[in-house]
Lab assay of single mutants.
Amino acid sequence: MPVRRGHVAPQNTFLDTIIRKFEGQSRKFIIANARVENCAVIYCNDGFCELCGYSRAEVMQRPCTCDFLHGPRTQRRAAAQIAQALLGAEERKVEIAFYRKDGSCFLCLVDVVPVKNEDGAVIMFILNFEVVMEKDMVGSPAHDTNHRGPPTSWLAPGRAKTFRLKLPALLALTARESSVRSGGAGGAGAPGAVVVDVDLTPAAPSSESLALDEVTAMDNHVAGLGPAEERRALVGPGSPPRSAPGQLPSPRAHSLNPDASGSSCSLARTRSRESCASVRRASSADDIEAMRAGVLPPPPRHASTGAMHPLRSGLLNSTSDSDLVRYRTISKIPQITLNFVDLKGDPFLASPTSDREIIAPKIKERTHNVTEKVTQVLSLGADVLPEYKLQAPRIHRWTILHYSPFKAVWDWLILLLVIYTAVFTPYSAAFLLKETEEGPPATECGYACQPLAVVDLIVDIMFIVDILINFRTTYVNANEEVVSHPGRIAVHYFKGWFLIDMVAAIPFDLLI
């Protein structure tokens, strides 16, 4: 008679799926529990143990900040960024110097990925580790590398530091407007667009060049630039800015003055950032001319202004700041037409079709709590990747769950009947059967004279019903998954307890 339990259901295979997918890609990662103190490590794979030199037993239950890997060259700011990422709910990448158990130093890129439950609360953290440099290539500990984003994938490793954006290309926007319009339909740009040429040739750093990471940081200074100062900065030398009595002219307006920039070969870094931020506020060169004239017309309804409409929906549905990093990277690809469009465009503009998908598509409701890094690593669709929660398995109709209350009560009843059979069957065979043979035949009273025979008949009927119930009862397979398919249940029961239950259900007393 089957006594099969499996009270692990309803099970959740999400954690096993993450481990299996990460292991298949030869990654070095740990999984931490966000619900406990210090976000203790609950799993670390073999790749991480080989990377740091510690065994799994030495890593388990330690804080996922990996303070046991810190050393003299470990930056405090990087460690603080990892700790801050564990307090938030967004994906974050941090470069930090770690030390192995043998004392060797290596520069590592740590990717902190939160995993949320159905309520939107962070319950786990996945920390992925990628070695960037070994100890002989690690720089000085005073050099802070965590304020910069990861290198873009479309640049060669040897040319990542030679990417320079020439400031004269930004200063000569109005001069290039006529050349853009003359391109017409034969050019790649839309009317009114501004073409910015980027020099990728390796050259020595000069005062006129600005690194790509500095251009990325310009967006942080746009908020500090007032509207009046932006307007004066875009007017140009024809209309000098008016300053109040006793007030000095704005240095932001002076930063885009061609006369002032041409007199000296070098520009201050602050002026460069502010000038680029001011130019980015204009949607095209037409807006710059309109600002000089004193009238700013409404933005025209053409394809170039609607190019950012799908980007707005993608940004609203993005799951991490990696989408913004990807957008900034692609927006700086050289030799393309940049349409400086305000994100607050007309909502009635139709979304044009684009061959290049900048932001990841909208994630469906079932995966809105899973970050983009987890979705990318697992390579699963929205119909396959579940949320991290207890999910009731989908069972067929008329199927009994093996952990249901009805099955528990039924098993206790069958257990009592088995005990009765084990006690009274030998007793009936030894004593009652002998008395029946010696006594007179009682054929007239039937079952009324033999109450134990009636009980034995009921017990046999219950055993037959138990066999039928076992054909529709779920079970737990070797992978700790609840199986509810009727065919698989029948095959599993035939290979197991079916023969024993059938022999126990045969009414031998009635056959004798």
Results as ranks from 00 to 15, higher is better:
residue 2 P to R: 05
residue 4 R to D: 13
residue 6 G to A: 11
residue 9 A to K: 14
residue 12 N to L: 11
residue 14 F to N: 05
residue 14 F to C: 13
residue 15 L to D: 01
residue 15 L to N: 01
residue 16 D to Q: 14
residue 17 T to P: 11
residue 17 T to M: 07
residue 18 I to W: 10
residue 19 I to E: 01
residue 20 R to V: 05
residue 23 E to M: 03
residue 26 S to F: 08
residue 28 K to Y: 06
residue 28 K to E: 01
residue 30 I to H: 01
residue 35 R to P: 09
residue 36 V to H: 08
residue 38 N to P: 14
residue 40 A to K: 08
residue 41 V to S: 01
residue 41 V to F: 01
residue 41 V to D: 01
residue 42 I to P: 01
residue 42 I to H: 01
residue 44 C to D: 01
residue 49 C to T: 11
residue 50 E to D: 07
residue 50 E to G: 09
residue 52 C to S: 11
residue 53 G to Q: 06
residue 56 R to Y: 03
residue 57 A to E: 08
residue 63 P to E: 14
residue 63 P to F: 01
residue 64 C to Y: 05
residue 69 L to R: 01
residue 70 H to G: 01
residue 72 P to V: 05
residue 73 R to Q: 13
residue 75 Q to M: 05
residue 75 Q to L: 07
residue 76 R to Q: 15
residue 77 R to G: 10
residue 80 A to W: 10
residue 81 Q to M: 12
residue 81 Q to K: 11
residue 81 Q to F: 10
residue 82 I to H: 01
residue 85 A to E: 01
residue 86 L to H: 01
residue 87 L to H: 15
residue 89 A to V: 13
residue 89 A to I: 08
residue 92 R to Y: 05
residue 94 V to W: 01
residue 96 I to N: 02
residue 97 A to F: 15
residue 97 A to M: 09
residue 100 R to V: 01
residue 103 G to I: 01
residue 104 S to A: 07
residue 105 C to I: 10
residue 106 F to D: 01
residue 108 C to D: 01
residue 110 V to M: 03
residue 110 V to L: 11
residue 112 V to M: 06
residue 114 P to W: 01
residue 114 P to K: 05
residue 115 V to E: 06
residue 116 K to A: 08
residue 116 K to H: 14
residue 116 K to F: 12
residue 117 N to I: 12
residue 117 N to P: 07
residue 119 D to V: 09
residue 120 G to E: 15
residue 124 M to G: 03
residue 127 L to Y: 01
residue 130 E to V: 11
residue 131 V to I: 15
residue 132 V to H: 06
residue 134 E to K: 13
residue 140 S to K: 14
residue 140 S to A: 10
residue 149 G to N: 07
residue 149 G to I: 06
residue 153 S to K: 14
residue 156 A to G: 15
residue 156 A to C: 06
residue 157 P to R: 14
residue 159 R to A: 14
residue 160 A to N: 14
residue 161 K to G: 06
residue 162 T to P: 15
residue 162 T to W: 14
residue 164 R to Q: 06
residue 165 L to P: 14
residue 166 K to G: 11
residue 167 L to F: 15
residue 170 L to M: 11
residue 171 L to S: 07
residue 173 L to R: 13
residue 176 R to G: 05
residue 177 E to Q: 12
residue 178 S to P: 12
residue 179 S to Q: 06
residue 182 S to E: 06
residue 187 G to C: 05
residue 193 A to R: 03
residue 193 A to C: 15
residue 196 V to G: 01
residue 197 D to T: 01
residue 200 L to V: 12
residue 201 T to M: 04
residue 202 P to L: 01
residue 206 S to D: 05
residue 207 S to Q: 15
residue 210 L to R: 05
residue 211 A to P: 06
residue 212 L to I: 14
residue 212 L to H: 08
residue 213 D to K: 14
residue 214 E to N: 13
residue 215 V to K: 08
residue 216 T to G: 14
residue 218 M to W: 11
residue 220 N to W: 06
residue 224 G to A: 14
residue 224 G to D: 05
residue 224 G to M: 05
residue 227 P to I: 09
residue 228 A to N: 15
residue 240 P to T: 14
residue 244 A to D: 12
residue 245 P to D: 14
residue 248 L to F: 14
residue 251 P to L: 09
residue 253 A to L: 14
residue 255 S to V: 15
residue 256 L to E: 11
residue 257 N to E: 08
residue 262 G to A: 05
residue 263 S to P: 11
residue 264 S to T: 07
residue 268 A to V: 14
residue 270 T to M: 07
residue 272 S to P: 10
residue 273 R to A: 14
residue 276 C to M: 07
residue 280 R to P: 09
residue 280 R to V: 12
residue 281 R to K: 15
residue 281 R to E: 14
residue 283 S to I: 05
residue 284 S to V: 12
residue 285 A to G: 07
residue 289 E to F: 04
residue 289 E to Y: 01
residue 290 A to P: 12
residue 291 M to P: 11
residue 291 M to R: 15
residue 291 M to E: 14
residue 291 M to D: 11
residue 293 A to T: 05
residue 299 P to W: 05
residue 300 P to L: 07
residue 300 P to F: 01
residue 305 T to E: 14
residue 306 G to K: 04
residue 309 H to M: 05
residue 312 R to L: 07
residue 313 S to H: 12
residue 315 L to A: 15
residue 318 S to V: 08
residue 319 T to I: 11
residue 321 D to W: 13
residue 325 V to Y: 08
residue 326 R to G: 12
residue 326 R to I: 04
residue 326 R to K: 13
residue 327 Y to H: 06
residue 328 R to D: 13
residue 329 T to Q: 15
residue 331 S to W: 05
residue 332 K to E: 14
residue 335 Q to V: 03
residue 336 I to N: 07
residue 337 T to Q: 12
residue 340 F to Q: 15
residue 341 V to T: 11
residue 345 G to H: 11
residue 345 G to A: 07
residue 349 L to G: 12
residue 351 S to F: 04
residue 351 S to V: 05
residue 354 S to T: 15
residue 354 S to G: 14
residue 359 I to D: 07
residue 359 I to G: 14
residue 360 A to Q: 09
residue 360 A to R: 11
residue 363 I to G: 05
residue 365 E to R: 07
residue 365 E to V: 14
residue 366 R to S: 11
residue 368 H to F: 11
residue 368 H to M: 10
residue 368 H to S: 12
residue 368 H to G: 05
residue 370 V to M: 14
residue 377 V to Q: 01
residue 380 L to S: 04
residue 381 G to D: 09
residue 381 G to R: 03
residue 381 G to N: 07
residue 385 L to I: 08
